[in-house]
């Protein structure tokens, strides 16, 4: 095998990041292979969101390096655009564009960034929304959808750019409990289809059953990582044991 093929899809090397005097990421390294489903867990304030956001350049970092599919994460607008073509992101608050329908939300980036024509836009919107089970909601505005449906539109919107890796930051935390499962099922399907996923989540059962790798962050460091089922059954550190115990 050539080195390119063995190279991880996402390579994070010794990332450090401070907000003013507060060091939030204290030297994080992590490799994510093609098809991995990485679940990041940890206490509030441990740096999970910050780490995730450095991967697509929404957050800068002070030292270390990140690359996605060979594209390094660096400053300028052109470089970030190239990077973000490969990295999708889904947010806790959905962040759908309120003045656009579900279909328009999904088709906007293909139109603006890829120059897709009207027909291609319509096809992409339909295909992606069908994939998340919303083939009948193309014309609905975000305000006409439930939280779970909005989050599924947000997933479809990210998928429309055919990212190599999808970042999800607590995407079920803003949902009513009865709506969580419909979103998790979509993510599970993506995982089964081979999508590379990095998820920050509080859904421990989901992390155990769907994740291929578990990362426990603690005080800005990767405190423990490994196979989810093994780690949940037998945490290697008292901190993870306590965290798993407190979540239940």
């Amino acid at each position: 095998m050539s080195p390119a093929e063995t190279r991880p899809l996402v390579e994070i090397k010794d990332i450090r990041k401070s907000f003013g005097p507060l060091e939030v990421l204290k030297g994080i390294s992590m490799d994510v292979a093609q098809g991995d489903v990485v679940a990041i867990i940890g206490r509030s304030g441990s740096g999970k969101s910050t780490l995730l956001r450095t991967i697509n350049g929404l957050e800068t970092f002070d030292s270390g390096s990140i690359s996605v599919d060979g594209t390094p994460v660096i400053g300028g607008e052109k470089e970030l655009k190239a990077l973000r073509r490969k990295v999708g992101m889904v947010f806790q608050q959905f962040n759908l564009f309120p003045h656009l329908t579900a279909a328009e939300n999904v088709a906007l980036a293909p139109k603006v960034v890829l120059g897709a024509g009207a027909k291609e836009q319509a096809e992409t919107a339909r295909e992606m929304l069908e994939k998340v089970g919303l083939g009948d909601k193309l014309g609905n505005y975000p305000s006409q959808l439930s939280g779970g449906q909005q989050q599924r539109v947000a997933i479809a919107r990210a998928l429309a750019m055919h990212p190599k890796v999808l970042l999800c930051d607590e995407i079920t935390s803003a949902l009513d409990p009865e709506l969580v499962n419909e979103v998790l099922r979509v993510v599970e399907t993506l995982a089964k289809d081979g999508m590379t996923l990095i998820l920050v989540t509080h859904e421990m059962r989901f992390a155990r059953d769907v994740g291929s790798k578990l990362v426990f962050m603690h005080h800005g460091k990767v405190h423990e990582e490994g196979d989810p089922k093994t780690l949940f059954a037998k945490p290697g550190t008292p901190e993870l044991a306590q965290f798993v115990g407190s979540i239940g």
């Binding site: 929404l58 655009k81 962040n95 980036a109 919107r157 990210a158």
Partner: peptide, 12 residues
């Protein structure tokens, strides 16, 4: 979040 969602979709 609307800015961030747009930027994440590779828009300038």
């Amino acid at each position: 979040g609307h800015w961030e969602a747009g930027l994440s979709l590779a828009m300038s």
